[in-house]
Simulated scan of single mutants.
Amino acid sequence: MNAHVRQPHIDQLEWRRSSYSSEEGGECVEVAIRPDTVHVRDSKDTARAALAVNPAAWTAFVGFTAL
Rank of each mutant, 00 (worst) to 15 (best):
A56C: 03
I10S: 15
K44D: 09
V62H: 09
A66G: 14
N54D: 15
L51G: 08
V53G: 00
R34Q: 15
A56L: 12
T65P: 01
S19Q: 11
T59G: 14
S18I: 03
T37P: 00
G63D: 14
A3G: 09
N54M: 06
P55H: 01
A49I: 03
Q7S: 12
P35D: 09
E23S: 11
A3T: 10
S18G: 07
L51D: 08
V38T: 08
Q7A: 12
T65H: 13
Q7V: 07
H9Q: 14
V53M: 08
G63K: 15
R16G: 05
T65S: 15
D42E: 02
L67F: 11
E14M: 08
P35S: 09
A52Y: 04
A57W: 03
E14F: 05
V40D: 00
F61C: 08
L13F: 10
P35F: 06
R6W: 04
M1L: 12
E27M: 09
A3L: 12
W58C: 01
L67M: 11
S21I: 01
V62R: 15
H9F: 11
H39A: 15
T46Y: 00
Q12W: 04
L51C: 08
H4G: 08
A66H: 15
S18N: 05
A56H: 13
L13C: 14
V62W: 02
S21E: 05
T46W: 02
V62L: 12
K44F: 05
P8E: 03
A66S: 15
D42R: 12
E14Y: 07
P55L: 05
T46M: 07
V38F: 02
A52C: 06
D42Q: 11
A3K: 13
V31M: 06
G26Q: 00
I33F: 09
P8S: 11
A47R: 13
Q12C: 10
H39E: 05
S21K: 09
A57K: 10
P8H: 11
